[in-house]
Amino acid sequence: MKKQIFIALLALGAFWAGGIDTARAQSQFPSVRIENAAGQMINTSTLAAKRVPLIVSFWSTTCKPCILELNAMNDLLDEWREEAEFEVIAVSIDDARSSSVAKALANGNGWDRFTVLYDKNQDFKRALNVSMAPHTFIFDANGRIIYSHVGYTPGTEEEYIEKIKSLN
């Protein structure tokens, strides 16, 4: 019994110490598969390829503060765009049951200037270690996380635009 554990430990240790000798990429933007608004699977790394700062916000249909946050950003987007260049990515973490409601909600709320993605299997959510919504990240043009925030109180969106402006 003890022998088994020892072997298991050794195996794990070897696996871990041997590591994979890949250089740590500069970008912290995950590379996972996710569904876009057209129902096609895309790789999230294509989003960072544009090389502009990104606001990535995780939301769900049953999360009221998430919807308030995205609506607040949507209302101010025109004014913000005059001040800085960036993109907003709204990631729905609704499961397969309510992802269609999420589509109706995103369209009905007029989020057509956001890139809305549907993380039905929650791969993107897990890759960024999101445990509760709303959870918003700001990535710089090189895909590095420069800011992250959990929860939403009205006015938090001002913090986002300031961080974005500090990049330009």
Partner: peptide, 13 residues
């Protein structure tokens, strides 16, 4: 059964 339509600022589910 679930039927949804969305487009042009309108979402029906």
């Amino acid at each position: 059964i679930e039927i949804g339509y969305s487009g042009n600022g309108l979402g029906i589910f």
